[in-house]
Design a protein around this nucleic acid. Sequence first.
DNA 1: CACCCAGCTGAACGTTCGTTTATGATACTA
DNA 2: TAGTATCATAAACGAACGTTCAGCTGGGTG
Lengths: 236, 236
Amino acid sequence: MILIMRSADGVDIDDRTARARIRDAAITRFAADGVAATSVRAIAADADVSPGLVIHHYGSKDALRHECDEYVAAVIRQQKHDVLVSGASFDPVAALRAAQSHVPLTRYLARTVIDGSPHVAELIDELVDDAASYMADGVATGMLRPTEYPYARAAIVTLMSLGMLVLHEHVDRLLGVDLTRDMSRVDDAVLATAYIGPMLELFTKGLIADEVAAAMRTVFVDGDAQALQQEEEPAS
Amino acid sequence: MILIMRSADGVDIDDRTARARIRDAAITRFAADGVAATSVRAIAADADVSPGLVIHHYGSKDALRHECDEYVAAVIRQQKHDVLVSGASFDPVAALRAAQSHVPLTRYLARTVIDGSPHVAELIDELVDDAASYMADGVATGMLRPTEYPYARAAIVTLMSLGMLVLHEHVDRLLGVDLTRDMSRVDDAVLATAYIGPMLELFTKGLIADEVAAAMRTVFVDGDAQALQQEEEPAS
DNA sequence: CACCCAGCTGAACGTTCGTTTATGATACTA
DNA sequence: TAGTATCATAAACGAACGTTCAGCTGGGTG
């Protein structure tokens, strides 16, 4: 009945106490329905305990959510660390696997990322910093193209990936690919043609033609608000 | 006290009745705090009416949310139409402007896009279809690069843009650019260097080097699950 | 054995929620 | 002026919420 989180998964946490069960149930519920729409009673029912015990262990629903944030952040950091020490520098396969980590955790992150938790914001800052570091390595080894904006590019790519994760429901509906599922378990051609294929194409060949980009660059980067009005009054 | 939505903005809606005030207040509140975390009483207070009137006009909170969905979808469709009839085909400036449409509506869309509303899902499907159409035009006129995956690419780019919008809070924190603000009003260099600059670079030059992409393509697109396991057992 | 102290429960607390209802104010119509 | 929809409110409803608390349980210790 209860979706029990596999306790190990590379992380050395071995608790299966009621306290841990409550935390896992909370993470799954928060991820599925959002924090505000999840009741303490629902969490308690999922964890097969009384509502009172939830409060007894965590003090309040808010504190529980707080601890879920920290736990998810800790697990993701751990996974990041594991990836880092196993396959060094920028390994796209490992990075992709790390990004698509444990299912409920990923779903949790995708949900709470918009509810303005300071812990999650911190975690995202770290993810961006790490991405910037990885991508600098990637540029150095020639795997990635050089950039004028190392940090901004890392932030944008990270947030784009995260954004796709947040919108996983729509990605699934439109492309038939569930990003919150472990991708290494999906072996069909759908994933390839519907997601990774166009993704690789997009990030290899680009999207915008050079001359158009140059024009847009003139307007937005070199130009100013005046040039932005060129729709109504075509100048130059 | 109340954040009143400008009634016109290209859409021929001129109601300033209490009913409209409630709807506008609900959109703003739903956008800011989420649907579940917003109480009917808070909406009523923002609209300067009694909680009972909210129900009297809309029947229930859920029906109100339903109507907000439909209203936002209608306004966005209207704006899309306006852009379409004014500057034809794929005009990047107009497209960008249309994407960054009216502030509370954009925020609303960014919030409700993850709560699984059928109306919003429908709207997204339309946005993707439109993007596919625009991008096909762009390819025909040479403004965009050709693609093996026309629909998937359109979906990915649309969802990526939407994802950035959803994560606007983090985009703002990391890059100092508020995507929910009207971009034509922001004339400083921050927007250019922090967002549009790297965005243009990313979608023009790409990110991944050709040889790496070719390798990843071999693994993910041409290969299969067997090849995906090459980390543990490096084959071939 | 008595003790006891975590872990845990069931019932209840006060609050807030969405919603209902009875009633008042207002403006149009005959 | 009387009648009557329409718009709006204040008060209250039951349900569900987060939370509290007194008491039950069962394995470890004297």
